[in-house]
Simulated assay, not measured.
Amino acid sequence: MRTHANSSRPHDDTPDTDAAFARLVDLPDGPEREALRQSLVSAWLPVSERLASRFRNRGETWEDLCQVAALGLVKAVDRYDPRRECAFISFAVPTITGEVKRHFRDHMWSLHVPRRVQDQRNRVRAAQRELLQVFPGRAPTEAQIGERAGLTVAEVRAGLEAIGCFNALSLDAQPQGGDHGFTLADAMGGPDPALDAVIDREAVKPRLRQLPERERRILYMRFFRDMTQSRIAEDLGISQMHVSRLITNSCDRLRREIMQDAV
């Protein structure tokens, strides 16, 4: 018999449901067994919907919640063994609830969070709610939360950080307290062009040390002090053409040796 979703169990649970499960175990695979299986699932759907209602307003649609709970019910029907001393409802409730919780754990997080941290998050949230009832109007400390939840302070901090990982903000959202028109996307970093320069400098350092002292001095004045070739020539007492030739030869030599090292 199909009952309203607020019912805790089908009216014909005993003895008809017990007899149906006993018969289901003995039936071989085939149309008759499948029909009986479907009737049991249909009869217990109100229970799965009632359990799904406990998880409303957590970011998932009602239709998807019912679908996940129904999947848990199907698993409960397929796995239940009436020969054990356990009523079906005692087996079905944790199976359905576990399926819904698994759905939230595996599919509803915006960021990948280890299951250990997810468990810490849940325990931290539960401890926070309990402490707020005991001490209303006062935020509990990390030590108080840890004592209540049976966690270390470090685990409490990990759980608190994970609370903000369930739902992600849009990049178009404005940071809390931010200036008007400034979004999270504006705060994102990008590739740093200076990284290539760092790599080049580290590669050229040992080769620079091997150059003659005068060539090292010329390169330093040209590329680090930004001196013109004519100024360098005047400072060293040589011609500008000689300076230009030395710079070209030194750079070619460095480039050639670095490329050989890369090979």
Rank of each mutant, 00 (worst) to 15 (best):
Gln118Thr: 08
Val204Arg: 08
Cys66Val: 04
Arg201Ile: 08
Ser42Thr: 14
Arg253Gln: 05
Ile218Arg: 00
Trp62Tyr: 10
Asp200Tyr: 03
Thr183Lys: 05
Asp13Pro: 02
Thr152Pro: 00
Thr248Ala: 10
Met188Ile: 12
Ala5Thr: 05
Phe88His: 01
Ser250His: 02
Arg50Leu: 06
Ala194Lys: 11
Cys66Phe: 02
Lys75Phe: 06
Asp172Met: 06
Leu171Arg: 13
Leu71Arg: 14
Arg9Gln: 13
Val77Lys: 00
Ser90Glu: 06
Gly189Ser: 10
Asp261Leu: 09
Arg216Gln: 15
Pro28Ile: 08
Pro94Trp: 05
Leu169Ser: 10
Gln120Pro: 01
Gln210Asp: 13
Ser244His: 07
Ser42Cys: 08
Arg115Phe: 06
Leu73Ser: 01
Met1Thr: 13
Asp196Ala: 11
Pro28Gly: 12
Arg115Tyr: 06
Ser170Asp: 15
Asp26Arg: 07
Met188Glu: 14
Asn6Ile: 09
Ala139Gln: 14
Glu60Thr: 14
Asp106Gln: 03
Trp109Asp: 07
Pro94Gly: 13
Gln144Met: 08
Ala126Gly: 08
Val204Gly: 01
Pro206Ala: 06
Arg253His: 05
Arg105Trp: 03
Ser42Met: 09
Gly189Asp: 13
Ala87Trp: 01
Lys205Asn: 13
Leu51Thr: 01
Arg2Ile: 15
Arg138His: 09
Gly177Glu: 04
His103Trp: 13
Gln144His: 04
Asp26Ala: 12
His180Pro: 10
Ile163Arg: 14
Phe21Pro: 01
Gln118Ile: 13
Ala197Met: 08
Phe88Trp: 02
Val68Tyr: 02
Val153Gly: 06
Gln67Ile: 09
Gly237His: 05
Gln128Tyr: 03
Val41Met: 11
Thr141Tyr: 06
Ala20Val: 03
Gly30Pro: 07
Asp200Ile: 11
Arg157Ser: 13
Gly72Trp: 00
Pro82Cys: 06
Trp44Phe: 07
Ser230Glu: 06
Gly189Gln: 13
